[in-house]
Computed example of a mutant assay.
Amino acid sequence: MKETLISLSEYLELRQKLPILDARSEGEFSQSHIPEAINIPILNDQERKTVGTLYKEEGSEKATLKGFELVGPRFHQIQKEVIKRFPNRKIILYCWRGGMRSQILSWLLSMVGFEVFRLKGGYKTYRNFTFEEVRKKRNFIVLGGKTGTAKTVLLQHLKEAGEQVLDLEDLAHHKGSAFGGIGQDPQPSVEQFENKLAEALLQLNSDSPIWVENESRKIGRVILPDVFFSQMQASPHLDISKSEHERIAHIESEYAGLPKEELKQAVKKLRKKLGGLRTKEALEAIEERDHPRWIQNLLTYYDKAYEFELEKHPKEHTLNLDLTGLSLAKQIDLLIHSKDQLYERAKNTID
């Protein structure tokens, strides 16, 4: 079969129909990759290091020969694995810059009847694209509120109601607090998070408002791009409030079933901010499974932290909404109505 070199725009069309193979080493892939890609390394991490060192010290020819010496005995294994996984024998392929590794894998697969579409410029081209994408100007509407106001739940229901929603915590695999990583999948690298963020943004209309939860610049160990975060801070902001009873009940519904030791470790991370006595009381309450008590204890800290963050949003673009006691359907209706009102007001202010 044949190989076809494709541009990024052609890749974005084809990827809806074909599997994507990444020919880089497992370490490179683990650090970041095109989402949905499958790793079929031509050289593993150690082999890549060996070839790279030889290239620097003795030049291209010796490095190339060494590469073939290392991978050659595995050629048939690679072919068999890809045939087994992709019996339709049509794939998209890339390496770091669209060079030797993807060329070798393309040749190997072409020899056994594959039709290969190889991305020009490789992963580097894709990464440049996602880097720019997450830094474009967009129209956000920020949903804020103290811990326990169920912002994530509201965003999910706003999406079901047809609103555009960007769930940063879902992309980051973290809920944004000391407790946010409990029960979550491992967090992506900052670079991989940006790839995922770009892919999510591509699904949304940048000319229309996009709901996003108010976040700090760091979500766990993931860092939001500066330009993106600055846009969030300057965007219209809906600050919701609920009763303390509702907030505690919501937090309890999310965290009460988690392992005690993981909850305790999360509290200990906050020891310096909570102080010794408050930390001790929270740990005792967790041990006794007195969830309302340890939650109320921590809300004192989280409420102060939120009030500090709220000051960073322009007051003229902030609307306060009290959702206490309202049904979920009523909350969603009120949020959508308020969004339209606030967004129009912000537009008129800018004009």
Rank of each mutant, 00 (worst) to 15 (best):
N214M: 14
S9N: 09
Q77P: 01
K159E: 14
L323N: 15
F179Q: 01
T152Q: 09
E26A: 15
E191I: 05
D45F: 06
T125F: 06
S110R: 11
K159A: 14
L321D: 06
G180S: 04
L5H: 07
D239L: 13
K339G: 00
L319S: 11
E288M: 07
Q231T: 14
Y301T: 04
D340Q: 09
S177Q: 06
R217V: 14
I34A: 07
E261I: 12
N214T: 15
L197A: 10
D170E: 07
S110C: 09
V82Y: 10
E61L: 13
R48I: 07
I141S: 00
E252F: 04
N320K: 12
K347A: 00
E47I: 07
D170C: 02
F131M: 03
H174I: 01
M111L: 11
R345T: 10
E10N: 04
T349P: 02
L14P: 06
A249Q: 09
A346F: 05
W211N: 09
T4Q: 10
W96Y: 15
A198S: 13
K347G: 08
P73A: 11
F29W: 11
T300S: 08
W96I: 08
Y123H: 02
H313V: 02
G27S: 11
E3R: 12
N348Q: 09
S241Y: 08
K175A: 05
E215H: 12
K175T: 02
I182P: 02
T64Q: 05
K49I: 05
I42T: 02
I92F: 12
V116S: 01
S32I: 01
E344H: 05
K268F: 00
W294I: 02
Q265I: 10
S25Q: 06
W107N: 06
H245W: 06
N88W: 10
V71G: 06
Q341N: 03
Q192T: 03
I240R: 01
F114N: 04
P236E: 07
P35T: 05
L283E: 03
N195H: 15
I248V: 15
G145E: 05
T4S: 07
E133S: 07
R74Q: 14
M100H: 13
N320E: 12
V267L: 11
S7A: 02
E262V: 01
R138Q: 06
K49S: 10
H33I: 13
Q187A: 04
I210G: 13
F179K: 05
G72P: 14
R278Y: 00
Y255K: 10
N39E: 09
L8Q: 06
N39L: 10
Q341V: 01
G59F: 01
F131P: 00
P87H: 13
D207C: 03
Y94F: 15
S253G: 14
K137I: 02
K280V: 04
R127N: 02
G72D: 08
T64G: 00
A150E: 00
D22W: 07
R217I: 15
V227E: 14
H33C: 10
V134Q: 00
S216E: 12
S338F: 02
V222N: 14
I91K: 15
F86N: 13
R217A: 13
R85D: 15
E213L: 13
P87R: 11
P259D: 08
E169D: 06
R293A: 09
Q31R: 14
E61D: 14
Y255R: 10
E309A: 09
W96R: 11
Y11S: 00
L18G: 08
N39C: 15
I83A: 14
I286A: 06
L299S: 04
Q16C: 04
I295L: 02
K151E: 08
M232C: 01
